[in-house]
Amino acid sequence: EGALGYVREFTRHSSDVLGNLNELRLRGILTDVTLLVGGQPLRAHKAVLIACSGFFYSIFRGRAGVGVDVLSLPGGPEARGFAPLLDFMYTSRLRLSPATAPAVLAAATYLQMEHVVQACHRFIQASYEP
């Protein structure tokens, strides 16, 4: 009564969009960059990478990033640390284990994903507590 307008908020929308983007990635639809990580080619969407990583933001935001469709990360992260981060970007779930946490932490630091870095530190701290 008397409201100026009505909004229906679909609370699942952001996770549904992300799920569809992940399906597009898995099927290679509209992926516009190949990342060579430890020699392993990984296809992804620049828009998702730039939205999730300060490192990719600094690379792709400028015109220099426009023509780049293959990107090797020399001296960068190893695949076992990078792949869980790429999955995290597209699923919001970061898979960690005591064996992989140091590699994921190193990759997240390289990719300037500060919030993930903090989560890795918390995980590593917790795994040392008795």
Binding site: G54, Y57, M89, S92, R93, M113, H115
Partner: peptide, 22 residues
């Protein structure tokens, strides 16, 4: 249990915030 995954919910910000156009 082999393969049992414990999930911890992280409520805080997950990724950087792209600055709004000045």
């Amino acid at each position: 249990h082999e393969g049992l995954v414990a999930t911890v919910k992280e409520a805080g910000r997950s990724i950087h915030e792209i600055p709004r156009e000045e």
